[in-house]
Structures are given as C-alpha cells and as structure tokens.
Design a protein around this nucleic acid. Sequence first.
DNA 1: CTACAAGTTGACGTTAACATGAAGTCAAGA
DNA 2: TCTTGACTTCATGTTAACGTCAACTTGTAG
Lengths: 159, 159
Amino acid sequence: MKMERSPASEALTIGELAALFGLATHVIRHWEAVGLVTPAARVNGRRRYHPEHITRIAMIVQGKEAGFGLAELREILDAPDLVTRRALVERHHAALERRIAEAQAAKVMVEHILDCPIADFTHCREFQRIVQRIAVPVPLLAPADAPYQSRLEPGNDEL
Amino acid sequence: MKMERSPASEALTIGELAALFGLATHVIRHWEAVGLVTPAARVNGRRRYHPEHITRIAMIVQGKEAGFGLAELREILDAPDLVTRRALVERHHAALERRIAEAQAAKVMVEHILDCPIADFTHCREFQRIVQRIAVPVPLLAPADAPYQSRLEPGNDEL
DNA sequence: CTACAAGTTGACGTTAACATGAAGTCAAGA
DNA sequence: TCTTGACTTCATGTTAACGTCAACTTGTAG
C-alpha cells in the first residue's frame, strides 16, 4: 500500500477529499474550474485541502441534491457579507419551498395513480380534476410580445 | 385576426395545445420525437390533438416540475397494464419522497444560514453539525471495485 | 389573388455538469 | 532504480432537454 495518509497533519489530498464524499477527483477539479472550491495551497503542484473544505463540499453536495445549480451555490457560498448572503439565501429559500410544494403536488398525483381503480387512469375524472389545475396557465394573458416563457426550468425570472 | 379557432369541433392544433401550457410548439414536437406524445392524426400534414392530449401534457409538465426526466415519464405514461404501471409508479413514488426529504434537509440548512448570528456561518458549530451528517457516506465501505458512484443525479442505481 | 401567420422537416447550436482520455510529473516501496 | 499509483493540465466527448435557423407548404382574411 502506498500513500496511506496525507503528509502534513491536517491536510487532505484531492483523492482523500473526494473519497470522503464518494466523488470522483475530476468532479472536484471541475467545481474548482467553475469557482466553487479552491484548495488551500499547492504542494509540488498538488492540491491541499483543509477541514473547512469538507464543510464546503458537504454544502455543495447538499445543495445539489436539493436541485441547485453550481452557479447558484457559488453565489450563496461566496456572498461577501451578511446582508448579501441573507438576500440570496432568502431567494433560494423561497425557491426551495416552491420545489417542495411541486414535488408534493406530483406525489399527490402519483398516489392517486396508485389508488385509482380505473384501468386507464387518464380517463379517471378525479385524476383529471387533480391534473387539470396545471393547464391553462398563461393562455389568455399572453400579450403576444413574449413568444414563449418555457415555464419549466425556473431559469431566472423567479429567482 | 387569423386562425381564431380550430376547424374541427374538438381538435387542437399544435399551437393551441402549446398555448394552453405556455409551451413552445417545438417543445411538443421534441416530446413527440422522444415518444412522449403523439398527435391523434394529421390533417394535410398538420398535427391534430384531442382533449386527452391536454391531460397527457399536463401530466408531463407536472412530472417535469417534480424533477422527472422525459424517459421516466414515458415509462410511467406508457405502462401497458395496471401491474406494470403500479410497479413503476411505486418506484417513482419512493424517489419523490426522497427528493422531498432532500429538499427539506436543504431547507433546514438554508434556514440555519438565515438565523445564524455568526458572520462566517461556515465556522458555526451548529451549522457544521447539520451539514457534516452528509459527509463520510462511502469512505470506509468503498470496496475498491466501483471507481466512483457519482452519488448525485440519482441515475439508475436507486430507481 | 395575395399576404401572412402558423405549420412542416431537418440540421445544427446551446447549456449544465460532468466523463473520458492522453501525456506527462511526482513520491515512495521493493 | 524501477515501478506504481496518485496527481497534473488540456482537450474532447456525453447526456438531457431544449433552442435556433432555414426553406418550404397550407389555410384563411381581406
């Protein structure tokens, strides 16, 4: 066995850091490339990470699992001051609540499919009632200036 | 004004269907290309949609908002029989609950950032406690056969 | 009849977030 | 010293889900 432990007492190599989260090293390098993480120093060109990087990576992993993009996470994590961060986080907090609500709405739909006795559930009146609240969102309001709005993939309009 | 209503009584053009959901027509064509939707018929080459397509599109929109991919949605919607569909939907139901749980965990994290009085919240002990439960997930268990598992983007392992 | 809006296909471009491969450097055990 | 494994940079490939563009046909208002 070779390279069992990091040389310096409390410094991690990229491989060790990645192993902590079951990530590939190239993923961490990618995150570095987009400005999400930065190694504390280089030893012979090799990246060295400190314990605070573990927290950082944990936050990124968590954030990603919640559906945030790398750019969004960078914004939050690199906010220069309390005020800025609070504003950003509040925005994202709202987005999170929306996401949860949406997932729960989908869960209701899915649960009805599980319970619906009708063979082709698309003919189930109750199911259609659940689902049709989604339709007709912008049909009459479209002022003909905005060609289309995608609606999916929140984008920037609501964040 | 031109082309106010569809010719046949209860048939929609692709433009009308798209407008119902604020989608672009090319999105619906794309969904058709990947087998998610199929027009009822063609009238001189033009796609015609029936009311059941509205339900279908609504389900797709809903499913997408919950984070499902087009391929997953196709699986559910095209399940040949009740049993198959139930199995698929139960799988996705579990995935949904996981997703909700993850989003709520992220919300806890984000809410702590909002409440934490410490300037650099990454130094907050309580925050680190919340976040570090995420770390060290596979470090000692990795059997060295699986190079890495991505962990992010559920993929297929858990579905 | 003419314009024009809406529809058609097909090809190619975009964005996010990696994945993969090549070619070379470095550190340590046998 | 030789080998091996972890690391380096740089470049290119991949997947999902569209977006964009061009060149053409169709249907209806005026």
